[in-house]
Computed example of a mutant assay.
Amino acid sequence: MSEARIWHGGDLDEARRLFPRAPEPWIDLSTGINPIAYPVPPLPASLFERLPSPADHRDLETAAAEAYGATDAAMVVAAPGTQVLISLLPHLRARSRVAVLGPTYAEHAHAWRKAGHEVVEAEAQGQLGGADVAIVVNPNNPDGRLIDREALLRLAEELRARGGWLVVDEAFADFDPRESLVPALPCNAIVLRSFGKTYGLAGIRIGFAVASRAIAASLRSTLGPWAVSGPAVAIGRKALRDRRWLDAARAARAADARRLDALLKPVAETPLCGTILYRLLPSRHAPDLFRHLGEHGIWVRRFQADPALLRFGLPGLPADWRRLENALALFRSR
């Protein structure tokens, strides 16, 4: 029997299939990716002609350690995207009881279940402690729920007493790092960080795990050599050290999130939530709004588990903002 398909953002092929008469170009608001990307520097041809050097790869991990507040660069493992790390982690443990604090990013439960583990979705933080592995997305995707660091440290200690792991996915923490677990990382915790979302460069595929030296070594061994391409290494280490760009992007995207809230508030039935890079709209009219926006060439994120929710990423261009504003006005006037 084939596995159920997990819906993700960014699938414009599906958008065109569902709405073949929609105007082009599509505005893709279905992801939580910064629409204003980090400016890619000119790259020498040699980066495409040779394997990435171990020294450059280590420097990328050092840059990530500096950016995320890790105490030791040897605890940071660079990978070709966080999704690869999500898929690999279940293979580093014997069969375990895994609790995922949900509802959240579906690939976590899927990866552990596919690897033969017993997986349950916990509805509250208090239900995580009885598992061998607890998984928390912080801030959460899609609602932006944020668990404070002290609570995570207590959970890690509870798990450590019986050899358990705490996995914390901080894919959206770059713009809101106040509760990041990295600076106070317990020995049994693994933190995942995404590069592409914050820097708007999802296509180059970089992600990081931050863990104890022992767990990091296991991940590194499983990934094998040359896990990250030379061009991605060059771009990643430059961007991660550009704190001025990050601070400016954080302020600009926070302003964009407030602007988006103002546009969405008239069609929301309860308060909007989410993170700086996406906003979650609850409405019983969500299916109609999804269809209306699709017919106008605007692709937003719907959810299999709850059709009353839509997630909106941030528009990038002034023309995109105008098209979204006009489409929402037409929906309200119907």
Results as ranks from 00 to 15, higher is better:
residue 77 V to C: 05
residue 147 I to V: 15
residue 193 R to D: 00
residue 10 G to F: 01
residue 145 R to E: 07
residue 133 V to K: 01
residue 290 F to P: 03
residue 117 H to C: 01
residue 316 G to F: 11
residue 195 F to S: 02
residue 72 D to G: 06
residue 295 E to R: 15
residue 105 Y to R: 13
residue 276 I to W: 04
residue 306 D to E: 15
residue 143 D to E: 15
residue 324 L to P: 02
residue 132 D to A: 08
residue 226 W to S: 11
residue 111 A to K: 00
residue 202 A to G: 08
residue 148 D to G: 13
residue 91 H to P: 02
residue 306 D to L: 07
residue 62 T to H: 15
residue 203 G to R: 07
residue 319 A to D: 13
residue 197 K to R: 15
residue 152 L to S: 04
residue 317 L to P: 00
residue 210 V to P: 00
residue 198 T to R: 02
residue 65 A to K: 05
residue 57 H to C: 13
residue 257 A to Y: 01
residue 218 S to E: 14
residue 165 W to S: 04
residue 30 S to F: 01
residue 328 L to V: 07
residue 19 F to M: 12
residue 173 A to G: 14
residue 306 D to W: 06
residue 175 F to T: 02
residue 242 D to H: 07
residue 282 P to F: 13
residue 201 L to K: 00
residue 232 A to H: 00
residue 49 E to P: 01
residue 215 I to V: 15
residue 120 V to T: 14
residue 34 N to D: 10
residue 311 R to A: 14
residue 320 D to C: 03
residue 50 R to S: 15
residue 3 E to V: 10
residue 277 L to H: 01
residue 131 A to M: 09
residue 278 Y to E: 05
residue 193 R to W: 03
residue 189 A to R: 04
residue 101 L to H: 07
residue 259 R to W: 01
residue 191 V to M: 05
residue 45 A to H: 09
residue 234 A to H: 04
residue 153 L to N: 14
residue 3 E to Y: 06
residue 93 R to P: 09
residue 308 A to G: 13
residue 190 I to N: 02
residue 227 A to Y: 00
residue 325 E to T: 12
residue 205 R to L: 11
residue 273 C to T: 13
residue 16 R to H: 12
residue 26 W to C: 10
residue 146 L to Q: 09
residue 24 E to H: 09
residue 307 P to I: 11
residue 247 D to G: 03
residue 56 D to L: 13
residue 219 L to G: 03
residue 158 E to T: 15
residue 318 P to Q: 10
residue 324 L to I: 08
residue 113 R to N: 10
residue 192 L to D: 02
residue 247 D to V: 09
residue 151 A to Y: 07
